[in-house]
Simulated scan of single mutants.
Amino acid sequence: MSKPPRRRAAAPPLALTLLLPFALLLALVGPQAAAAAPGPTAGPAGVPTTSAPSPPRVPAPTTHRPVGTTSVHLVDASRHDPWRPDAATRELMVTFWYPALSSRGARAPYMSAELSTALFGGPELAAVRTGAAAGATPAPGRHPLIVLSPGFGYSRTSLTALAEDLAARGYAVAALDHTYETAVQFPDGRVEACLICSRVDERLGTEVTLSRARDIRFLLDRLTAPGPGPVRGLRIDPSRIGAAGHSLGGASAVEAMREDSRVRAAANLDGDFFAPLPADGLAGPVLLLSARRSSDAHDAAADWEEAWKHLTGWKRWLDLPEGGHLSFCDMPWLLDAFGVRDQIPPETAHEQYGSLSGERALAASRTYLGAFFDRHLLGRPSPELNRPSANHPEVRFVK
């Protein structure tokens, strides 16, 4: 979850903690984004010119390979929506990133103005530019797949920087929006709000984890079924599938691997384990990447210590002692790109972002997530996972 109740003994209500970073971001970046938005200014002899600063861009991937992207609306007719009893089906939105034949074409929008307004209260995040070509033709061949699940209350767009980097490495990436757990916009323009954000507790955390695992299984059913898949020309290698997620999305990725043998490896980015792991152990490879859990005096470290006992396969626990809970999504580099991090109240800044810059947090997340899947899906040597690296002094090897 964005910040589960058990992560701090005296935490404020979770709904407030969840929405606070959104409200702060918009309150801070609104004037900045307006100033940065390109627009005409008076040039010589009254000729308009666009001299305003460019809007923020998603940091470029670490590998120079064309990346394409598209979004798809999927409907699971086999089950009722768990959060809306009157809905006879489960509707989902998925964004795909993938190796492309060419980088030509218009860059995909980060999100629409309508979705930015629904999530943040204003259209400013629609100005952010991505590096992926909208609707580009996928590169030929079968691609290993990584499914991404965002933090509770957060859009799938919050994992864009990680997704673009993984796609540039050669993976097909599918990020899910879990409907009614965040604001979701569908192709017909309607925006469905989060229906359960105001009533989060530990019991609901377990229910959400299990529901998300079912969403992932449905997506894999669609992607591995015979015949054309949801994205024209994109072919998936069903023998090389991984899952990862931030916060509750990370715990859901591990749960999906527990339930579905098609998921060969799972990574949890600072998510509490609401659903208990099997008593006899989980044998698949698991990467745990946390922020300050190695020295946390509260239940956050204890939660992972308990989960660690039930991980019986390859496992690694890495920690960012100077990071925060949101260090593994797009929020830190967005704050830095808009130049407003120093305006966040200190308590919130420490809890959610720590003192680590967005650039360094993203670099660490990209390096270790990529190395993990390279090792366990592609069989490539990944020395970064064996010992501390001078290139990433901000990362501590816990176990």
Rank of each mutant, 00 (worst) to 15 (best):
A52N: 08
L74S: 13
S54T: 04
S116K: 00
W97L: 08
W83Q: 09
A108W: 07
M111Y: 03
A36E: 07
T117P: 02
P38W: 00
P56S: 03
V128L: 11
P85Y: 04
T95K: 06
A108L: 07
V72P: 11
W83E: 09
H73E: 12
M93W: 06
A118E: 10
T69V: 14
V94E: 06
P40Y: 01
Y110C: 08
P109C: 04
R107W: 10
T41P: 03
G46F: 04
T50N: 12
S71G: 11
P56C: 05
V72L: 12
A126V: 05
T89V: 12
P82A: 06
P55G: 10
D86Y: 05
V128G: 08
S54K: 02
P38L: 02
H80T: 15
R57A: 10
H73N: 13
R79H: 11
P109M: 03
P48R: 10
A88L: 14
H80C: 14
V94G: 07
P53E: 05
P38Q: 04
A100G: 11
Y98R: 13
V47R: 06
G121A: 09
G122P: 12
A52H: 11
W83V: 05
R57N: 04
D81P: 15
E124I: 02
T50S: 12
P61D: 01
T89D: 08
H64G: 03
E114T: 04
Y110H: 09
A118P: 06
T49D: 08
A37K: 12
S78V: 09
H73S: 10
P59D: 13
Y110W: 12
L125K: 01
A52V: 04
L115Y: 01
R84I: 02
L119F: 05
W83N: 08
H73Y: 15
Y110N: 05
T117E: 00
G46D: 07
H73K: 12
A42S: 08
L74F: 15
A87I: 05
L125Q: 06
R90H: 05
L74E: 12
V47G: 03
T95G: 04
L101F: 00
S54Q: 05
P40G: 02
R79M: 08
F96R: 09
V75W: 01
V94Y: 07
A77Q: 13
A87N: 09
P123W: 04
S102I: 08
P61F: 02
S51G: 14
G43I: 15
L92V: 03
T50K: 06
A106W: 03
A127S: 01
R104L: 14
